[in-house]
């Protein structure tokens, strides 16, 4: 496709040239007036995996949570700049947060299935919140979401067991299924494997690559190998002088890890800080 300096792979496609599922323009987030992330601007390519990497405290989580307006709950948090989902401004465009959040799903750092609900009830919780009541619809959605999350075969015999009876990796895949059941356009994942063992981690990484055919993924990770394995585009954040996170480089993953444009990116991926 296009030539990107430092890349020789003929199969290479520049994700920055693909249609954007979300666009961030000068996005800053502050808590009680203290800026945590500043002026982030990039496009999230549709049906690709975008990774946010950077040292701890560089604002990855903060930035991710601005994408589904989860900061609305936090006292003293303010988000400025523009975030588009397709053509819709998610803060100014008048879209209700409930609708927004059913179009942009989220998976958290620690598996957080609803402990009082069964596996089945967890899988369909989002649909029920959105008013779906018909059992046949819920059943079909549960099977489809659990299948997509690579969990159906191991739980189909015990859908009425409590979610807490699952292993950590299974719980996280249940959380992925729960998010997928609502059929979001974008799936946000905040270090989804950091609490899991290597085998569960590998399964979820494979899942992401599979899932991007139908959903755009934004994943926060502090594991650079993970970003390199699963993502197409990588945004590198780093704290500036005043400890606010800043975007240092947003590049195709292949390029960022082989021939980064910024010296600080090189330092980071070579483990010189962070």
């Amino acid at each position: 496709m296009t030539s990107v300096s430092g890349i020789t792979d003929p199969q290479f496609e520049d994700p920055r040239l693909l249609p954007a599922a979300m666009s961030l323009r000068d996005v800053s987030v502050a808590f009680h007036g203290r800026v945590a992330v500043r002026d982030v601007t990039f496009d999230v390519p549709a049906n690709r995996v975008t990774a946010l990497i950077g040292p701890s405290g560089s604002g990855k989580t903060t930035l991710l949570r601005s994408l589904n307006r989860l900061h609305d709950l936090t006292k003293g948090a303010s988000v400025s700049g523009t975030i588009l989902l397709g053509d819709t401004d998610i803060y100014q465009g008048g879209i209700p947060t409930t609708v927004l959040r059913s179009r942009i799903g989220m998976v958290f750092q620690r598996p957080n299935p609803f402990p009082t609900m069964t596996i089945y009830e967890n899988a369909v919780a989002g649909l029920r919140f959105n008013g779906v009541k018909k059992k046949s619809v819920l059943d079909a959605a549960a099977e489809s979401a659990l299948t997509s999350a690579d969990l159906w075969d191991s739980v189909k015999q015990r859908l009425n067991a409590h979610a807490a009876t699952l292993s950590g990796g299974e719980q996280q895949r249940l959380c992925i299924a729960r998010a997928l059941a609502v059929e979001p356009e974008v799936l946000l994942m905040d270090e989804p494997t950091s609490a899991l063992d290597p085998i569960s981690t590998k399964r979820i990484e494979e899942l992401m690559v599979e899932l991007k055919k139908r959903v755009t993924i934004v994943i926060v990770t502090h594991n650079m190998q993970q970003a390199a394995r699963v993502s197409d585009l990588t945004a590198f954040l780093l704290m500036g002088e005043d400890r606010a996170g800043e975007q240092i480089e947003v590049s195709p993953t292949l390029k960022l890890f082989s021939a980064p444009e910024d010296q600080r990116t090189l330092d980071y991926i070579q483990g010189r800080f962070g």
């Binding site: 989860l70 958290f108 402990p115 989002g126 729960r178």
Partner: peptide, 17 residues
């Protein structure tokens, strides 16, 4: 746990739900 409240809201639940 706050993470359950966030899980609920992130699925599109209203405050009452």
């Amino acid at each position: 746990p706050h993470e359950l409240i966030e899980a609920s809201l992130s699925l599109g639940a209203t405050r009452w739900q």
